[in-house]
Simulated scan of single mutants.
Amino acid sequence: MQKIDKNNIKIILVEPQLSENIGTAARAMLNFGLESLSIVAPKQNHLSLKSIRASAGANSVLENAKIYNNIEDAISNTSYVFACTVRKRDMVKPYCGPLELNNIFNSLKRKTNIGIMFGREKSGLTNKQVSFADMILQIPTNPKFSSLNLAQAVAIIASEINRIDQKYDERNYFKSNSVVAEKAEIIGFLNHLERALDASGFLRPKEKKDTMMINIRNIFARSMLNKQDVQTLRGIITSLLRWPTGHRDRKIMIETNKIADGNNKNKQQRN
């Protein structure tokens, strides 16, 4: 599967009515790595203060946008054009959904210039405008309420294009610098917790203690604790055992330290 060149894909807004929608569409584009915007006969200034504010920082997309008087000029340097619309058209033209974009893009040469047209907010693309497209691109919506905001439609399509290069099923987008806790650290925490629960009287009756601890261990086994998590949890246990006045009571502090460390005096073997 070939990678797509997003520089060769341009979003074409046909006769947009509100500058705010142009700004939010630009924002949606840049969210997913698309930067080429063409606007056909806009009703309002795409560089107005409302548009700039709505873009939430996607100023570059607006500033580099190309303005055209008609669709013919806007698509003149493209080789393949999609018309994004949900209305059924009385014309013979192939349809596709967003998930099919991957296969269609792969069938085209990598350097093919692609245009994706979106119509005006109130009525969408006209049949004449759709007739310039090679394919109709249809976003599945509720048949009883299918109208999408312009920026929402752009965001959906831009996201699907982004999906071609980015694996949306990966779970590592928000990787931190934290280090996963070692088993010894987790076992030490669980032993600390068990001693604390014993002291509080939670692990009763005695014959159910083993089963209760198995359930508790399984809860934390599913949590992928890191080193900081373990330290925080152990601190919470100690703080709760000292509540409400234990932090000022030396005897209570000695007892909570014993619970935290266990009875083994050898620090290297403390749990």
Rank of each mutant, 00 (worst) to 15 (best):
K50S: 09
P16T: 13
I237F: 05
R110K: 13
M91V: 15
T232I: 15
Y168I: 10
N215P: 00
K111I: 11
I11P: 01
T211V: 04
G97R: 10
R270L: 06
R217L: 06
D229M: 07
D165F: 04
K88E: 15
R27N: 10
E121W: 12
I214P: 00
A28T: 09
A181K: 02
R27F: 12
N106K: 11
S48Y: 14
N8P: 04
N7P: 01
T245I: 10
I114C: 01
K93S: 06
E100L: 08
M135I: 15
N142P: 04
G33D: 10
L99V: 10
N103Q: 13
Q166G: 00
N70F: 11
K6D: 05
I237Y: 05
M212T: 09
V61M: 03
D90E: 14
M117E: 07
K209T: 11
I11Q: 02
F220Y: 15
A155L: 14
G33N: 07
L37T: 11
I67V: 14
I219L: 13
I136L: 14
V179E: 10
D165L: 10
N162M: 08
L30P: 00
E100T: 09
S131F: 12
E35G: 05
E185W: 10
N70H: 09
T141F: 06
A155H: 07
E63F: 15
S19K: 03
A181W: 14
I161Y: 02
G119E: 12
I237R: 01
I22T: 14
N172Q: 08
N64V: 07
D165A: 05
A158H: 08
G188T: 09
Q231I: 15
M117P: 03
R270G: 03
V230Y: 08
I39G: 00
V61L: 03
A181R: 04
T245F: 12
K144G: 07
R248Q: 13
I39C: 02
I236R: 01
P94W: 14
A26N: 03
G33L: 07
A83L: 06
V179F: 07
K167C: 05
P94K: 09
R87C: 06
E255L: 11
L125M: 06
